[in-house]
Write a protein that binds this DNA or RNA. Structure first.
Lengths: 252, 252
DNA sequence: CGATATCTTGAGGAATCTCAATACTAGTGG
DNA sequence: CCACTAGTATTGAGATTCCTCAAGATATCG
């Protein structure tokens, strides 16, 4: 499936609106996803301070951003592409704890080592903040700490939904929930609602939902057979019977 | 099993050490778990401000503290007993997303309604902060916001561990992980390491681990039969072969 | 000491996993 | 431009874990 041909729609177009904010250095000034990220709520001068410590980077498919156990040296904003976070058991069993999309913040950690691995799903663009400098900024920028708390609260709520999914939903319910999540996230970051882009592999989906690739595949086939969804080219999926999916996702 | 006979060891003894901090109103001054809670890191004057908006309450077994969907009107500190958080599917399937013990903070929410239900497991003591006043305090007490962020980060890390457990561990591994978690939390709040108190029912454990009560019961029996654990009176469990449990918990 | 809830144990069944083979798909090189 | 290759996805058959339903044992509380 689309593994590297993945697109970065956020960067296809010229920088929008706020292209030239006075006093704010690029790349922030031209950042198309700024309003969807923690940067969105900052004042111009605050943004300038943040921009001063930020560097950007591009990485490509399946490259590791950081590994579970590494010293937590930086925090990141995803500005393009998809990132997956995962934890491993010693025997190789893997649980993906989240997928991140443009605008998502990465690296909030309680300890000084990362508790999970972050890996690119296809080409990814990142904005990197060294931890030390970032933490010093927290003193300086009151809005920033508030933003972080809000990000953390949201992730916590998402994590709880995911626990309900992992612990109590059937394979079909899991897949339905997942497709609706992808759709929601896609709309949230300003994309079209349909069709839903599915940039990750069946194996990734399986490790996110606590299933095997085979079960993911079978279940998707099943939903396709009853015309609830339709598989399109480029790994996109059309949610034909949206209501049916929502009922499924809630276990009804 | 011990359902109501549950003890509140934190309150069996007279208030400790910091019984009389000048300028800080009871109940905070006499709070035995203060050092383990968000209050622990506050300065005397900050604590006084916090104390001014706090009220205490006692609730008993299986009473609801708040429900999923209720307006998020307050935040809480657990000062005694055990609290369980859960989410429901429409057909009644339940996932417990966490157990809280003395010192734990409750109610960090992204939205203005609670995303989960909080219920007492046996008698519980709470310290209640009305949301509006609490949020105003955040402006006033810089330490407090930092503390909240730290609490949220820790919960996030715990949530990720739990996702790994729910998605990828076997029943035996789940039970082993759970017993070790209970032990860790017990030590963390200043208790003895052995035996481990298990105040919640088999049904609660099942709903926390994504299993059924029968499987929980069978698995515990199995661990008992091979002398990895021993069941004691009052719902306590002795972790006889600690190393075996740790290996099991990590899937080795 | 009896009533009720909780826990344990048993037998059979269902969902999901494992192992294995086949079919795609995308990129590669002739 | 097409066949080839390697990775990924799908499909199939059988195994396994865990669940469901049901009965019996134990504990707790009035």
């Amino acid at each position: 499936m689309a593994k590297d041909g993945a697109e970065l729609p956020e960067f296809r177009f010229a920088p929008r609106l706020h292209a030239g904010i006075p006093g704010v250095a690029p790349p922030c000034a031209a950042c198309s996803i700024r309003d969807m990220s923690i940067c969105g709520a900052l004042e111009t001068d605050e943004l300038a301070k943040l921009a001063a410590v930020a560097t950007t980077s591009n990485i490509s498919g399946d490259q590791t951003i950081f590994q579970e156990g590494d010293p937590a040296e930086a925090l990141f904003n995803v500005t393009g592409g998809t990132v997956k976070l995962h934890k491993l058991l010693p025997d190789g069993r893997r649980q993906i704890t989240g997928f991140l999309f443009p605008g998502d913040f990465l690296g909030i950690a309680a300890a000084d080592i990362y508790a999970y691995t972050a890996e690119a799903v296809g080409p990814v663009k990142l904005c990197r903040f060294p931890r030390g400098r970032f933490e010093r900024l927290l003193e300086d920028i009151p809005h920033l700490e508030r933003q972080l708390l809000s990000v953390a609260s949201n992730e916590l709520a998402q994590a709880q939904d995911q626990m309900l999914l992992l612990g109590r939903k059937s394979a079909k319910e899991k897949i339905a929930s997942f497709l609706l999540l992808l759709e929601r996230r896609q709309v949230q970051r300003g994309g079209e609602a349909a069709p839903v882009a599915v940039p990750m592999s069946r194996a990734d989906i399986a490790d996110y939902l606590g299933l095997t690739t085979e079960t993911v595949s079978r279940t998707i086939t099943q939903l396709k057979t009853v015309h609830t969804i339709r598989l399109l080219a480029g790994g996109k999926i059309e949610l034909v019977d949206h209501d049916a999916l929502e009922d499924l996702a809630e276990g009804m």
